[in-house]
Design a protein around this nucleic acid. Structure first.
Length: 92
DNA sequence: GCCATGGCTAGTA
DNA sequence: GCCATGGCTAGTA
């Protein structure tokens, strides 16, 4: 798989690949995990540019308050919900 | 370089 | 308010 992007984006996407099926992380958790705890906003941007969804599971990132957050890929938010549902994750 | 733009967050009101 | 991007303007050379 040939990922192309900035250093930052690659860090984010690589981290996404480590989130196992059936689990979710928040944008803030991802930010912390890549060593940039205050870059949660930028993380959201990078996640949104995921080139290979759902192979790279950007759908497993949700908001800190437990709500879904967004999904700018094909199918939109419904698709995100559906993907999570198929992994037995239920979001409010 | 500057500025707007986001799949957001924590903390106030 | 946080912060990485991308587009676009000045303004220099």
């Amino acid at each position: 798989m040939n990922l192309k992007g900035t250093k930052f984006q690659l860090k984010v996407w690589n981290y996404l690949r480590k989130i196992p099926k059936g689990k979710v992380k928040t944008y803030l958790e991802v930010a912390k995990a890549i060593g940039k705890p205050k870059a949660f906003r930028a993380v959201a941007n990078a996640v949104g540019k995921n080139p290979y969804p759902p192979k790279i599971p950007c759908h497993r990132v949700i908001r800190s308050n437990g709500s879904l957050g967004g999904y700018s890929r094909k199918g939109g938010i419904q698709q995100k919900r559906q993907l999570l549902k198929s992994e037995k994750v239920f979001i409010k």
